[in-house]
C-alpha cells in the first residue's frame, strides 16, 4: 500500500458516496446516467468474485463489499425508488457498443485463460469506458449539476492516482500489470476534457454548462 493507492481508493469511495448522497438528499437522480451505474455494478461484480475464493486483508474485503453494496444501492435508487426522476430520454448511449467489444477483448487479451481471470480482465476493460454513457448524457443536455461534477472529479481522480501508484510499484517493487496500466491510461484520458472544464469552471464557482 502506498499513498497514491490509498488516496485513490478514498477518492473512489468519496465519488460513490457523493453520488448516493446526492440522489438520496435531493430525492432525484436527474442528470445521472443509470446505464453508467449499471456498468459500474457489473464491473464490481465481475472483479470482486475473488471475495469468494481468496482473502487479502480486512481493508481489501471491506472496501470491495462497500463498493459492491453502494453500486447496487445506486442502481436501485435510480431504477426503482426514484425511477420517476430518471431522465431515460437523455440516457441514450448504446451500452452494447461497449460491453460486446470489451467482452471480446477480455477473451482475446488476458493474463490467463480462466473464467475468473477473464472476468477480472473484462471488469478492468469495462471500467475504463463505463463512464461514457454519463459523459454522453452531459454532452447531450449541455450541463451538469455541480454536485455531479464533484462526483465525476473524484471518480476520475481515482484512476489517475492509480497511475501514480503503478509508477511507484514499478520503481519500488518491480511490479507492473500491462492490462491494468493501459486500461487505466484510457480511463484517465477520457476524463481529461472534463478535468479541464472542472478546473476552469466549477472550481471558479460557475456551473458546468457546455456551449450549444
Amino acid at each position: 500500500m502506498n499513498i497514491f493507492r490509498l488516496t485513490g481508493d478514498l477518492s473512489h469511495l468519496a465519488a460513490i458516496i457523493i453520488l448516493l448522497l446526492k440522489i438520496w438528499k435531493s430525492r432525484s437522480c436527474a442528470g445521472i446516467s443509470g446505464k453508467s451505474q449499471i456498468l459500474f455494478a457489473i464491473v464490481f461484480t465481475a472483479r470482486y468474485l475473488d471475495l469468494l475464493t481468496s482473502f487479502i486483508s480486512v481493508y481489501n474485503t471491506s472496501m470491495k463489499v462497500i463498493y459492491i453494496g453502494c453500486a447496487y444501492a445506486t442502481v436501485y435508487l435510480i431504477y426503482a425508488k426514484f425511477r420517476a426522476t430518471y431522465d431515460g430520454n437523455h440516457d441514450s448511449f448504446r451500452v452494447e457498443f461497449l460491453v460486446v467489444p470489451v467482452g471480446g477483448l477480455a477473451v482475446l487479451i488476458n493474463h490467463t485463460f480462466s473464467p475468473l481471470e477473464i472476468l477480472w480482465t473484462f471488469s478492468i476493460y469495462l471500467e475504463s469506458v463505463a463512464i461514457l454513457p454519463q459523459l454522453f448524457m452531459i454532452s447531450k443536455t449541455g450541463e451538469a449539476e455541480t454536485i455531479t461534477t464533484h462526483y465525476l472529479f473524484c471518480l476520475g481522480m481515482y484512476r489517475t492516482l492509480y497511475l501514480f501508484n503503478w509508477v511507484w510499484r514499478f520503481y519500488f517493487e518491480g511490479f507492473f500489470d500491462m492490462i491494468a496500466i493501459v486500461a487505466g491510461l484510457v480511463q484517465t484520458v477520457l476524463y481529461c476534457d472534463f478535468f479541464y472544464l472542472y478546473v476552469t469552471k466549477v472550481l471558479k464557482g460557475k456551473k458546468l454548462s457546455l456551449p450549444a
Binding site: 493507492r5 473512489h12 481468496s54 487479502i56 472496501m63 470491495k64 463498493y67 492509480y162 500489470d177
Partner: peptide, 10 residues
C-alpha cells in the same frame, strides 16, 4: 505470484 500481487488492488 504476480497475479496474487495485483489482486490486492481494488
Amino acid at each position: 505470484e504476480e497475479e496474487a500481487k495485483l489482486k490486492d488492488e481494488l
